[in-house]
Amino acid sequence: MRNPRRLALPGRTVRLRFTALYGVLFLLSGVGLLAVTNLVALGSSRSTVPAENAQLRQPTLAAAQEQIGLLQTRLSEIHAVQSRQLLVGSAVALAVMAVVSVVLGRVVAGRVLRPLRTITTATRRISADNLHERLAVPGPADEVKDLADTIDGLLERLESSFAAQRRFVANASHELRTPLATMRASLDVAVAKPEPVPAQTIALADRIRTELDQVDRLLEGFLMLARTQHGALSDRATISLGRVVSAALDARAADITAGSLTVHDGDVHDGAWTRGSRTLLSRMVDNVIDNAVVHNHDGGWIRVATTSDGGTARLVVETGGHVLDQEQLSRLAQPFQRLGADRTGSGSGSGLGLSIVAAVATAHGGDLDLRARPEGGLRVAVSLPLADARAGVSA
């Protein structure tokens, strides 16, 4: 069981601890200074003799004794008044010193921690898309400089690792296309021989060709995912999500008709504009539409809408079907995650479609939201930064 006392103290930061430490040190210094001042003042007040003593010339014994008693009384009263004034002044000075100590402690702690805050801010700004940036903290060779240089070295190693990963994925995907093309050509040659080919051979060739097409799509998905996650955004333009969605629906008209699907696209309009890579954004929309068409049932429906709200352009695609588990849906944005054939009766797909959608959205400063509809089916919402339609070339 976790300690509730520790949970109740989330504000115990390093700056707060430094503030308390410096404040206590300043306060103790003030207390010591006031104590020394009080001791010196009290000692000097005791050694002070009123001037009236010097005016006594040849007094009688009784008069002298009476005068001495009066002087002692006055001296005691003056000493008591001075003590009270000194105590009040010391209390006020101590209160002022307490406030000043806290303020000075906080200022000093802030200046001490300023380089660390700078390092923290710069480190948060660096992500997988800009690993080439470095902290490059100036200053003398002290502990803060050593920490910054250590983080820069770590970023350099991470950049090299990411670059090696990109090269491996790209090279492997490219090299695998050659044997796939060779296998496909060998199948075509074997089936195209003049002598009669057994029906079993033709059926086997068709099945192998289907699997080769699936592997080819998988390699294409690898390349697209690697380019989206770690590549630079090329062919940037200002694009209308509505026009891209309309083009994607027109390209899949045959599949929509074959599945007897009803498409509700009345809310698709040209008001939702965003800026980014035309190729990647088109692929993102294609994957969302493909997901709605492939993972659907005969006679089902698809509702598509593009909206703009504040500074956000949004694409929303909904489908009907079985009631889905929201916890499982949250994993679909990861590569090779699928709900299985019990989702809509279709188990096809490489498991990269929605992960590519999520990667493209993130690369453009947006996000992907997957929601299970309470009455059954899936709601896919892609949010992207809104752009001005006059800012660039439309799509």
Score class of each variant (00 low, 15 high):
R227D: 10
H174F: 14
H295A: 00
N3I: 04
G365R: 03
T257I: 09
G105E: 03
P385R: 03
S346M: 06
G392L: 07
A192L: 15
A387P: 02
S83F: 11
I289D: 05
V360D: 00
S308L: 06
T257F: 09
S160P: 01
S282Q: 09
P4S: 08
P374C: 08
S394N: 13
G376K: 10
G345Y: 01
R303L: 12
G340P: 06
S346D: 13
V244M: 05
Q82E: 10
E318D: 15
T279H: 08
P10I: 01
V103R: 01
L249G: 04
Q200E: 08
F26K: 02
A41V: 04
N130Q: 02
V323L: 13
V191L: 15
N38M: 09
Q72I: 12
P138T: 04
S394W: 12
V144W: 13
R106H: 07
V99I: 11
D255H: 10
T48K: 13
W301D: 06
S346I: 11
P138L: 11
D286T: 00
G349C: 01
R114P: 01
L21H: 02
T362A: 10
E195A: 12
A164Q: 03
L28T: 02
T121Q: 03
A109M: 05
G299H: 05
S173Y: 06
G347S: 13
A361R: 02
G300T: 01
E133N: 03
P140K: 10
V36E: 14
S348T: 06
A80Q: 13
V40I: 13
A109L: 02
S346Q: 12
V103E: 00
Q229E: 14
D206G: 08
Q326A: 13
A381P: 04
L42I: 07
R207D: 09
T279A: 06
G30L: 05
A333F: 00
S282F: 01
H322V: 08
M224E: 07
R236A: 12
S240N: 10
V357W: 01
S383A: 12
L204A: 08
E159D: 07
T319S: 08
V107L: 11
G221R: 00
A192N: 14
A164P: 00
A247K: 02
A91R: 10
V189S: 14
D188T: 15
L155E: 01
S346T: 06
A8V: 02
V357Y: 00
D250L: 06
V88R: 11
T257C: 05
V323F: 07
L315Q: 14
D298N: 11
T178G: 14
L61S: 11
A387S: 14
Q214K: 04
R227W: 06
V357A: 00
A389Y: 14
G139C: 05
L233D: 13
G377M: 00
A203E: 11
L158Q: 03
L241P: 04
L225T: 03
D267Y: 04
S173D: 03
R217N: 05
R84D: 12
P138N: 12
S277G: 04
D290F: 02
K145T: 07
A109I: 04
Q334I: 07
A170C: 04
A387N: 11
I202W: 02
A109R: 00
R134T: 08
N171T: 08
L75K: 14
A237F: 08
L71R: 14
G340V: 12
T150F: 08
L113E: 09
L218N: 05
V215C: 04
